[in-house]
Design a protein around this nucleic acid. Structure first.
Length: 724
DNA sequence: AGCACGCCGACT
DNA sequence: GTCGGCGTGCTC
């Protein structure tokens, strides 16, 4: 009887062998197997003739698929992920599959519900509806032919639909979707803008040979028309009847973005974002696999969407941190896109105004083709960047007095202003004016953030909140003062100081849902608010044409951070913000408040721009032997007892002492304590990615079985993005 | 990861 | 005398 190796969703770097009478099962097929006292859904990895565990083999309970759910590309990607990230194959396959399929649901499309008219005499039917306006509209919509229920629901409420169903005017049918044909037509005469020279060069470079792997860095300054390059390149791919996968950052996926793609080609676009249900996700997955969808656009995990005829992959805002998954399988979707494009033999376009140093380095060394868009189209403007030295300056809630006057001047001109702070809440600490005691979260050993409007102090690391203490816990004095500045405090100051203008605060406290964010942003652009206060959120995706003054309150933190990428991220933030404000006839200015006006990185950034800064920063990384000039892997461990984490990592360090791999640690993590657990890490770095990988791979099973690992939660992070 | 088995404290 | 705490070990 044939034996199959099955990948099961367990944190174990091994497969489990099972018997099955069926001899024709192939890798990628899901099966249900008995596992100890329970049942699990696993995926066939391989068929073998012998097993080390011959005597204890059990039989597969049920075969779920006739053909593999994981196609050849996804299987290859799963193995690559398991090897590169040294992650258990079962968990990898779990990550790669949509949730519905992990649970064992069928991968065949469910019959869709469609609504149609009960007879063809439209006038007769409309007369039956009588005066109900919405119902008449729906009947009219259906005169063109039956429409899917899910689509009808977007425009009409269930009440309207049910009313017509009860009257027998409309009927519901289940229809098998048969979408085995891949075919769409792109209109010949697309109403498209004319590309400028640089755009045209980029489009030609990308579309020159679409039938092979090539990686492009499309470095386009804000407003240079990156999207138009995407669109015209996509057009060529679509004409070849091939599909396009587009990755966007979490926050960048707005209905407007999707509509732009839909309107241009008049084709169905599959959209994947975090608010979809498992079944909606599965539906897009199926329609992409069958070739029905020409374009799929989505966030990080969309990289796992199968395609019948892949033609191109685009990663927009390639520098964005949301492409790296922070828990479980810590993959980077942008890096994975390179592997996938190579596998498919299709071009990959990485687009951004502020390339990550890793990608820029690949472009500068010729590994990627570097396409640059330096001309700004029509209405775009870049705010003029300037430094404001605040050493010895008087500050009011963190803002320099001179800056307040500048705000006043811009507001009087009828412009909008934007102030950027990197902290939510009122103040990042509460301390006793008498003895200096700082109120700290006991689980994280970090100061509580003060939220005055909620009358609470909250730990921003674990979320725990409590009432603001009326007196010092240490000395009992009643004089508690705040330290530092958050968005809430700035809002209070500016509301008082500029009472005649409307101030709005945009951070994750003030925008609970995504729709709230869009409402507020719309209000800003309609001119309902003049003063805009916010965090990171403001730097992504939205334009503020009437903003003529942008102030960054504190640029210094990032210059002396323990995280070597902090300066890069600050530069990206500043450049992105500068590109979001103002327009050609009304250019903006941007001020960076700093205690370090002479800092070379800041100087370079504001005088020579991001491109120059990035090249300079790359030199620094090279001298310091940091990524992308070395490769890193990070072992993290956390335990209730700091010594347990330390001991585990020490043992790991001993095992991994290998030539050409530098080991640092075990050291406490930057966030040394979080949610009551002590966190330590062990950083490995090597000039050779292969040697680093081999060092870990050779010992991972012994590490996995280390008795010292029982008390700790540990994980490996290959190419770590941050060191929190 | 789950889940069972197993050996020591406060309770109907 | 039992219920239940979570340490240890195993799952093909």
């Amino acid at each position: 009887m044939p034996i199959y190796q099955i990948a099961l969703p367990l944190p174990k770097r091994q497969v489990f062998d099972y018997l099955c009478e069926q001899a024709d099962l192939v890798p990628g097929v899901r099966v249900v197997v008995p596992f100890g006292p329970r049942e699990m859904v696993g995926v066939i990895v391989n068929a073998v003739t012998e097993s080390e565990h011959q005597t204890k083999l059990k039989a597969i309970k049920r075969v779920l698929d006739e053909s593999p759910v994981l196609d050849e590309a996804l299987l290859a990607i799963s193995h690559w992920l398991a090897h590169y990230y040294q992650h258990p194959i079962g968990e990898v396959m779990q990550t790669v599959m949509p949730v519905a399929l992990r649970k064992g649901e069928s991968d065949k499309p469910k019959p869709t519900c469609v609504l149609g008219l009960s007879n063809s005499d439209v006038d007769e039917l409309i007369s039956q509806v009588s005066r109900a306006k919405k119902q008449t509209e729906l009947v009219q919509m259906l005169t063109a032919g039956p429409v899917a229920l899910s689509e009808v629901k977007q425009q009409f409420s269930m009440a309207v639909i049910n009313a017509l169903l009860e009257k027998g005017i409309v009927e519901k049918h289940e229809v098998e979707v048969s979408s085995d044909v891949l075919s769409w037509s792109v209109p010949e005469s697309l109403d498209k803008p004319r590309a400028n020279v640089q755009q045209a060069l980029a489009i030609t470079a990308i579309t020159h040979r679409l039938d092979r792997f090539a990686c492009f860095l499309l470095e386009g300054i804000t407003g240079s028309g990156k999207t138009e390059v995407y669109l015209q390149s996509i057009e060529e791919v679509l004409r070849q009847q091939r599909q396009v996968l587009i990755l966007v950052p979490e926050i960048g996926l707005t209905p407007q973005t999707v509509k732009r793609f839909e309107r241009r080609f008049g084709l169905a676009v599959g959209v994947l974002h975090s608010n979809l249900t498992d079944n909606e996700r599965l539906n897009v997955w199926q329609r992409s696999r069958s070739g029905e969808l020409a374009i799929v656009i989505g966030t990080r995990s969309s990289i796992f969407t199968p395609m019948l005829k892949p033609g191109m992959i685009i990663v927009d805002e390639e520098h964005d941190g949301s492409y790296k998954q922070q828990d479980g399988l810590k993959y980077n979707a942008r890096d994975l896109a390179v592997i996938l494009a190579k596998h498919y033999q299709v071009p990959l376009v990485l687009g951004t105004a502020t390339p990550s140093l890793e990608t820029l380095n690949n472009a500068l060394t010729g590994k990627y083709q570097h396409l640059q868009l330096l001309q700004r189209a029509g209405n775009a403007a870049l705010a003029k960047q300037q430094l404001m030295d605040i050493t010895n300056q008087s500050l009011e809630s963190g803002i320099a007095t001179g800056m307040l006057e500048r705000l006043q001047a811009h507001l009087e001109q009828g412009s909008q202003v934007m102030i950027f702070v990197n902290r939510r809440g009122f103040a990042p600490a509460l301390l006793c004016h008498h003895c200096g005691f700082v109120e700290q979260c006991k689980r994280c050993n970090k100061p509580y953030t003060v939220h005055k409007s909620l009358h609470k102090i909250q730990c921003h690391h674990c979320g725990a909140a409590k009432a603001i203490p009326p007196k010092c816990n240490e000395c009992g004095h009643h004089e508690m003062v705040t330290h530092g500045v958050g968005t809430e405090q700035l809002e209070a100051l500016l509301k008082k100081r500029f009472a005649q203008y409307s101030t709005v605060r945009i951070d994750s406290d003030s925008v609970r849902g995504k729709s709230k964010l869009h409402t507020l942003l719309d209000e800003v652009n309609r001119g309902q608010h003049q003063i805009l206060i916010g965090t990171q959120i403001l730097s992504k995706g939205h334009h503020f044409p009437n903003v003529t003054l942008v102030v960054i309150l504190d640029a210094d933190g990032a210059l002396f951070s323990a995280d070597f990428r902090a300066a890069e991220h600050l530069a990206q933030l500043i450049t992105q913000l500068a590109g979001r404000a103002g327009r050609a006839e009304k250019p903006g200015e941007m001020w960076l408040q700093t205690h370090q006006p002479g800092h070379p990185l800041l100087q370079d950034l504001i005088h020579n721009g991001y491109g120059d800064f990035a090249r300079f920063a790359l030199q620094e990384r090279k001298l310091a032997d940091l990524p992308p000039f070395c490769y890193q892997g990070l072992f993290r461990a956390e335990a209730l007892q700091a010594s347990d984490a330390f001991q585990f990592l020490s043992t790991v360090a001993e095992l991994l002492t290998i030539e050409n791999v530098r080991i640092m640690g075990p050291l406490p993590a930057i966030m040394e304590k979080r949610q009551g657990r002590y966190r330590m890490q062990l950083l490995l770095s090597s000039p050779s990615r292969a040697q680093l990988n081999r060092a870990i791979a050779n010992h991972i099973v012994s590490i996995e079985n280390l008795p010292a690992g029982r008390k700790v939660r540990w994980s490996i992070d290959i190419d770590p993005q941050d060191f929190l």
